[in-house]
Design a protein around this nucleic acid. Sequence first.
RNA 1: CGGGCCGUAGCGAAGCCUGGAUAUCGCGCCACACUGGGGGUGUGGAGAUCGCUGGUUCAAAUCCAGUCGGCCCGACCA
Length: 504
Amino acid sequence: MAKAPQTAIQPTRAEDYPEWYQQVIRAADLAENSPVRGCMVIKPWGYRLWENMQRALDDMFKATGHQNAYFPLFIPMSFLEKEAEHVEGFAKECAVVTHHRLEPDPAGGLRPAGKLEEPLIVRPTSETIIGATYAKWVQSYRDLPILINQWANVVRWELRTRMFLRTAEFLWQEGHTVHATAEEAVEETERMIHVYADFAENWMAMPVTIGSKTPAERFPGAVETLSIEAMMQDRKALQAGTSHFLGQNFSKAQEICFQSEAGEREFAWTTSWGVSTRLVGALIMTHSDDDGFVLPPRLAPTHVVILPIYRDDSQRSEVMEYVESLRKELATQMYAGVPIRVEIDDRDVRGGEKKWHHVKRGVPIRVEVGPKDIEKDSVFIGRRDQSKSVGLTRSEFIGSIGTILTEMQQGLFDRALELRKANSVDIDNEADFRAFFTPKNESEPEIHGGFANCFFSDEQTLDPLLKELKVTIRCIPKESKGETGSCFLTGKPAAHKAIFAKAY
RNA sequence: CGGGCCGUAGCGAAGCCUGGAUAUCGCGCCACACUGGGGGUGUGGAGAUCGCUGGUUCAAAUCCAGUCGGCCCGACCA
């Protein structure tokens, strides 16, 4: 027997976390790099996961009164210039289309021809083009609210990209709403961040903290940005979703105005909110282990994979028949409101290899069925969250499949929550703050830090220290709103308590 | 965009410093055999214009210049 590696993924998380992350994506067949710089190919297994995320989110958007629509990929450059802060925040990272044709060049290749009057930018986000459209749609308070979402791809010419976490092109949804009053828009902003938190916790099994961003971390042009923040296994924070209250900034820039009931001409109040394929990265870094990806059952493209075991053709037909009936019966069972998703893997590959294939891809449950099991009417099941397999009778298994998946989903959440708790601290002085965010081994930093909850008085004063330690203010958690104390750095009275962390 | 490391078969690497013949190894892949509740064993085989462009040279994977791409760190990050 050839020696198998100790872990399916190498290096392990402890050895080299960033490299581990890359390897999990590869081993789990989620995505790969493309010939285009910073852009990735999402492979079928990764895309099926994304589709499950989309479906769940989309249902939640519909349930909160939104409809889908679609706006253009291209935005006239002038649109981006309208909102001052927005220009500042976006201009640098945009892909720009300047020509509309190709023609042969003398060297035998092709060259751009047909210069555009006005350059088009590839949308980095759609506030401007959607706002311009809304301006035409809104005349009266009776036209409000507008509650629209779009599923789209956007391009941000990032200088440093990482699969799923920050790619030049990514898939996302962006909600854009218009309201007659500030209160209503604020309410919408909050409603949607709660939808995201609900999705993160109940579908992704990823605990998140809802909070508001400090002025420096806000979306350009927003009055308030709410985010959900999650702790990854290397204890860094990941912003997993944002919801912006845009006030009247965009409606003024784009003249989204309406006549109120009282007959006054008023500017509307807008919001925008989004989550992206970054959530796949979040999922990987929240649950995966040194054997590969671990999928929360609710989002798993396949809940159960059946691995038939046989030696020859006569055994094969017997086993396949049994396995097919098992598949049918499992598919009549429900988990979290949907029928169990079962697949049979009858590929002609070695048993061990086949098993590891599914382990690395994160399939929650593997079922092994061979002639001996059929004799006893039993199955051998392996759970992705446990290393050992157990034998169950067929009826026991079928009867408990829903419970097992529910247990696994909850188990993943609990484990992630524990990690966050274990690595969250309250800090009220600079020395502790420094110690918390400084690795013991400077040359090869070990996994360290976490979430530090600290009072602070003024964002600007903290800047040098935060820069030095590479720490950022993640958010001012909703639940710590209103708490007061003294600034961990200056000792001055502080009106805010925030989560500080290193971040992606 | 700055710093560092790196592009050699599908994947991972050696060779490069000190230029020279058929570019080496492991995994994977294909075929056959033995196997068979586990990433197994054996035999045979396929697969690489050494990232790209140019230069130096009788001769370049190797030296030089440029360029494209990747990873990590940093700056930036809606």
